[in-house]
Design a protein around this nucleic acid. Structure first.
Length: 290
DNA sequence: CGTTCAACCTGGGCGC
DNA sequence: TGCGCCCAGGTTGAAC
């Protein structure tokens, strides 16, 4: 399930598309389940074709492709840049390699003079919960701005991190998933970082000492950075793949996630699974304290 | 402010 | 072998 490390891996994996012009947008019909696209495929294609992909940004768990203003400089003021915002949600993937089955969206790219090659950028989503939206600067702000996403978990500083969470009465695990507080953490990495910090996921934010916020901040960035380095986690359902359609390698590092009943790698106590905010939380009742 | 639930979806795993 | 069921979890929005 794409969280920060997986989405960052996607962003890096599609870097070869930067500088290329969109020649066509294809949205196959047929057996494909519907995918939220705004505007609908035909309009989106008309607006996107001819623009150059100038940058691939990551905002939390979303990718935003910055598309150049079309046409002459005079027209630029009127039309301006656009952003193609892709939200993979549960099973969405951005690929430059061919997808395992029919894709949802295919951008055919060309026109870069330094390489002069052609390329494709594909979005495939097994469950079809993902979204692809074309927006202007105001729309980007709405989808990815500070009203929706807090500072990025990978780069937020200790003081800001603590200040955005410590006053909450919520359980720390639940608060870590709040994208408005801190952006990028999902269910899997929340469990892993709390294990490494030795913190019981049920502790209320307010109960955590300053020292423990500092420790949590440090391990959060260690865990996320290492997961980015290893290109994310591909679970047994094997949905998540890199842009080259290869599995991630961080799953070998999982200490608690998905390991209910198995011995804690640190102390041997059986890993427990509980439910918080309707989602599974895995933790070691011995190593993770209140 | 916080929690809970339903909705969006499909495929893998389970019990029978 | 197969049917029905539950579960996986990112995000939103409504209800309490």
């Amino acid at each position: 399930m794409p969280e920060l490390p997986e989405v960052e891996t996607m962003r890096r994996g599609i870097a070869t598309a930067i500088g290329m012009r969109v020649d066509s947008v294809e949205v196959p019909q047929g057996r494909l389940r519907p995918l939220l696209m705004q505007p609908p495929p035909r309009e989106l294609a008309a607006e996107v074709c001819g623009r150059v992909i100038e940058a691939a940004e990551r905002h939390g768990k979303r990718i935003a492709l910055r598309l150049s203003s079309p046409g002459s400089p005079r027209r630029q003021a009127a039309t301006g840049c656009r952003w193609l915002v892709i939200e993979p949600r549960m099973t969405g993937l951005l690929l430059v390699a061919e997808p395992p089955s029919q894709e949802h969206v295919r951008l055919r790219l060309g026109g870069r003079c330094d390489r002069g090659s052609q390329q494709q950028l594909l979005f495939w989503d097994r469950r079809g919960l993902g979204t692809v939206r074309l927006v202007d600067a105001a729309g980007l702000e709405q989808l990815c701005g500070p009203s929706r996403l807090g500072p990025d978990a990978l780069t937020i500083d200790t003081a800001t991190f603590a200040s955005r969470l410590r006053d909450s009465t919520r359980a720390v695990k639940v608060a870590l998933l709040d994208q408005r507080a801190v952006a990028g953490i999902g269910n899997l990495y929340a469990a892993e970082m709390l294990f490494h910090a030795g913190i019981d996921p049920r502790v209320r934010c307010r109960q955590l000492s300053r020292v423990r916020w500092g420790r949590l901040h440090a391990v959060m960035q260690e865990v996320l950075a290492e997961a980015v380095e290893l290109e994310g986690s591909t679970l047994s359902d094997a949905t998540y793949r890199t842009a080259l359609n290869e599995p991630g390698r961080y799953q070998a590092r999982h200490r608690v996630y998905g390991r209910e009943g198995q011995p804690c790698p640190a102390c041997g106590t059986a890993i427990r699974r509980i439910v918080q905010a309707q989602r599974s939380t895995f933790f070691c009742p011995q190593c993770q304290r209140r």
